[in-house]
Design a protein around this nucleic acid. Structure first.
Lengths: 180, 180
DNA sequence: ATTCGACTGGACAACATGACCGGCGACTCA
DNA sequence: TGAGTCGCCGGTCATGTTGTCCAGTCGAAT
């Protein structure tokens, strides 16, 4: 039931022009949008309760959920863990400059560092952007040393996060995509 | 049951020194870690099945889960929605430079843009960092125009994400924090 | 007109849930 | 040393939910 997503974010993002015909196959409709909102607001809700709230039959909700998951629109329902509550209250973003041809090695290196929560390769004069967490500012130094203590990395510039006024969110986008 | 988290990521991160005594109260132990891993791997698992896999009593899993949630370690189980599958395959990070004293206005402005998935205020010469998505590179221009089309923003520099070798992850950190 | 897909409303057995309980062992503290 | 506290165990119970069927309706496309 948990089929491979047709769009893997591990891949290169391929830029496409989407025709109206294709849109019909990939877009989510209002009911999908409402379902996702509902699940986001009250995740421990069951299929049955969701169907009651949405005013549709239980089978419909079940079918929509299955479709959203095999579509890859909903990747899963993993627990949302707060690094701060784990003892890592400091977040930072590091821009890394990479030696030519060392990209793969650097990726592998960074993947082994638990404090690297996320890594992207980007355009622009920095080559990679990664999200780090640490136990304290002093600990951040240790993390950065570990991150940049690798041959392929030429330079790193780090920005420490002070405030996070907009937490990672998806609902507004879902609403826009579903015409809600 | 879903009490307020003692550590809200919307707040300023306060840097603390953690004594061993405090650690005992906040850290997660091996069982917590295994439970989180299990939930991350198979989110639709129930409490009963989890207790079987972990080899502990059902009540124990229930109690641990409750504690992790009221601790704020587990914020929730929201659906993990893939923007690419919604029709927004382009991701970018924008560094914004803000006019003095306009921070709050800019935050409010950005919060109204659905394509802004995340916003941080940071140290460094850029003042804010935000994560954007768009339907295409051309669409990204529209999104950026909307983001920077606001009085308080002086300059923006954008890095388009090409690849995402390490997806947002938390398990390695959980393992480290739980001594697993 | 027919076929197709999506939705409805209903049924069923199997299962999971929340809420309890008494009891056990480990720990803290006076 | 003894009392209290805490987390965990293994069990019970009524209740609600799940997965899986089914026949029937509706609208859109062929």
């Amino acid at each position: 039931m948990t089929g491979d997503s047709p769009v893997s974010s591990g891949d290169l993002y391929i830029l496409t022009t989407v025709t109206p015909k294709e849109r019909r196959h990939m877009a989510i409709d209002r009911l999908d949008g409402r379902l996702i909102e509902l699940l986001a607001a009250e995740p421990r809700i069951g299929v049955l309760e969701a169907s009651r709230r949405l005013g549709v039959a239980r089978g419909t909700v079940q079918a929509r959920l299955d479709r959203l998951q095999s579509n890859g629109v909903i990747r899963g329902f993993g627990p949302d863990v707060d690094p701060a509550a784990l003892g890592y209250p400091v977040t930072a973003f590091a821009t890394l400059e990479i030696k030519q041809g060392q990209g793969a090695d650097v990726r592998n290196h960074l993947a082994t560092v638990p404090e690297v929560l996320e890594l992207h390769t980007t355009t622009g004069h920095g080559d990679m952007l990664c999200r780090l967490v640490a136990r304290s500012n002093a600990d951040l130094q240790r993390v950065i040393d570990r991150v940049v203590g690798f041959d392929g990395i030429m330079r790193a510039s780090t920005a420490i996060v002070m405030e996070n006024p907009v937490r990672l969110r998806i609902i507004p986008l879902v609403q826009q995509a579903s015409g809600d």
